[in-house]
Design a binder for these strands. Structure first.
Lengths: 193, 193
DNA sequence: ACAACTCGTTCACTTAAGTTAAGAAATGCC
DNA sequence: GGCATTTCTTAACTTAAGTGAACGAGTTGT
């Protein structure tokens, strides 16, 4: 696990052994079972999540229905909105698979940032990268139909389609499970021809 | 104009007179006419835009059709993707109205950041704020129907509906102009009852 | 002033997504 | 193993969005 984390960090900054040990001493790693709920609506958590192995999802419950809006897999991190604005969470986060992740909170983070200014730099790089990606994703979503979105997903994240239940994928694509099922049948039909 | 800019900045950091003068000496302000194209697809610009007065929009041309994905009005800024990743732009940016904005680029920015580290701090705050907002907006978009999206817009940005042409609003809502027209008629019909 | 465009709306028709319900397949739990 | 639950698919029907075309109002340009 250490190696995965440090491998990821090394893409942004380089760490000395001392720094690595400082990080490890924080006891960040958590191993959680499929289905575990990491964050509930209404909860005021300060925890930032970073997935080392497995998959977590973010979802709302609207009119009693789960609406999944994002998945996070290996090397992807989620800073819940409630951490940023210090308000109760609007959404849930749970594990799609057995997952290993790091859990950090600003207190620990501030400590690290003070000790190692590099961290501040990495966080900014990460958040800029994320913002850019997010904007492109949003644009793509707006400019395509459900079917195109599914085909794009098939191209860009084929793993998600395999590892995530259909009904969760459906709301991620902005449609109902039945529509996804039908849409897939439609595509298969076309492929045959 | 100065006042608008400094008023905005003061929400994040406080500036001395010297710092204000340093900023003004950069000659950031631009006054552009409605319809002016500020960024073209394929272009490699380094300019970051911040709207002081007026409205600009970001749009793609896909299969010969304009797809508007974002509007930026007073006190909103756009750092085009091509600035971040130093590649040709995927989209266009043009003025919906006569607009006054600041145009900055990383060279100037770096100069400022070096001279006044505060700026770095403000930029990070801005980008974090934006990222959070963007995520919520994306979630809202995914979890609602075109009609709900229109009603939300009516709630949250009634000005946009007034100042922006319908066909641009339509793709912003992820639908065709005719559908927006129909959807609006439908809502009016309901209101009567 | 007139022609050429743009823009918004409407209509008829097509296509796809929402809804409700039912049943098959897979999964989880004694 | 067997029962219950969840997940996925299918189907029939409803509703809304896409498409192509037409029209009038407003704008632009000459």
């Amino acid at each position: 696990m250490k190696n995965i984390l440090f491998g990821f960090i090394s893409k942004y900054i380089s760490l000395t052994e001392d720094e690595k040990n400082a990080i490890l001493s924080l006891d960040l790693f958590r191993s959680v079972k499929k289905g575990t709920v990491l964050l509930k609506e209404g909860q005021k958590s300060q925890d930032e999540l970073f997935v080392l192995k497995g998959c977590i999802r973010k979802y709302y419950i609207i009119d009693g229905e789960e609406k999944t809006t994002a998945f996070f897999t290996e090397m992807e991190g989620l800073v819940p909105h409630c951490v940023t604005n210090n308000a109760p969470s609007e959404y849930f986060v749970s594990c799609v698979e057995d997952t290993i992740l790091t859990v950090t909170n600003p207190d620990m983070g501030a400590g690290l940032n003070v000790t190692f200014p590099k961290f501040e730099i990495m966080c900014r790089m990460l958040s800029e990268e994320l913002l850019a990606k997010q904007q492109i994703d949003f644009d793509e979503f707006k400019t395509s139909s459900p079917e195109q979105r599914y085909l794009n997903l098939l191209q860009n994240r084929p793993d998600l389609i395999q590892r995530v239940p259909q009904h969760q994928l459906a709301s991620f694509l902005g449609i109902k499970p039945q529509s996804l099922s039908r849409l897939r049948a439609r595509i298969l039909e076309k492929d045959k021809t």
